[in-house]
Amino acid sequence: MLFFIGRRLYQAVLVMLTVALIAFAMFQYVGDPVANLAGQETTLADRELLKERLGLNDPVLIQFGRFIANAVQGDFGISYRMRVPVRDLIAERFPATLELSIMSAFLALLVGIPMGVYTALNRDSWLSRSFMTLSLIGISLPTFLIGIFLILFFGVMLQWLPTFGRGEVVDLGWWSTGMLTSSGWRSMIMPAITLAIFQMTLIVRLIRAEMLEVLRTDYIKFARARGLSERSISFSHALKNTLVPVITIIGLQIGSLIAFAIITESVFQWPGMGLLFIQAIGEVDIPIMSAYLLLIGFVFVVINLIVDILYYTIDPRLRVEK
């Protein structure tokens, strides 16, 4: 087990180094950092000074080393436009995105898995047919459209829920959370649903397809022939076997929830990283972009590690004996 995790960690570090290289290359080769910082009336001497201070005259390898050392400590430099350390910007925005993503991941799993199981077990009932039709709509409707509809109905027409922002947040010092106030929760509902719908429909279809596959296997037939209850067959035998391949995709999907919440965040003006990133792209704010890249890479690596460990605990065939 330890050996297994050790090897996965080693691979994770390699992946992170590669991502760091790309992020670093952005600094180096996309635009000139000095030109971004300096105004029109900065003299040539001042520019040289700036270059020296930013360490841009050192060899590339040393710069890369410095970049990594800083990144490990959470220092991603200073935003070109906002003149604030990127770390503070991210610390301010990251909790918003993470809370939103985790909320919608929960929503997608909590609704998607039972729906997938139900549609696989009762293939021909009218309820599963309508679930499948709905999921088709969910997969094909663009996220922003769903968001705008929700705003129209529940925000504008019914006036039940706030249409933008996070509501009141409570600052815990290192984390600002909206989960402690009722206005925070109410603001969360619509963005979370919007973000969850696509994942949910994907999970329904995935679970259904895998489960149908598993239900056809010999061990399910044999379990039936032994007179085990349908409940035990469906849940403890079939569902567990279904989850093995599904976990990978669900893991990656949760990663992409965090990484690509951008559209939802823009629709609801959610003060998360997606919004920050979009602004950064518009303004060619490279430190923010590269920090975002590193952070998302890190999120994916962590999720993959968790998926691997889950695999290992669920599937005994991976635990090869020596």
Binding site: D218, F222, A223, R226, N241, D315, P316
Partner: peptide
């Protein structure tokens, strides 16, 4: 009781 053909696939691999 019933016995199936393929012993490799008639047992639940996760239990």
């Amino acid at each position: 009781g019933m016995i199936f053909q393929d012993p490799l696939t008639s047992l639940n691999p996760l239990q």
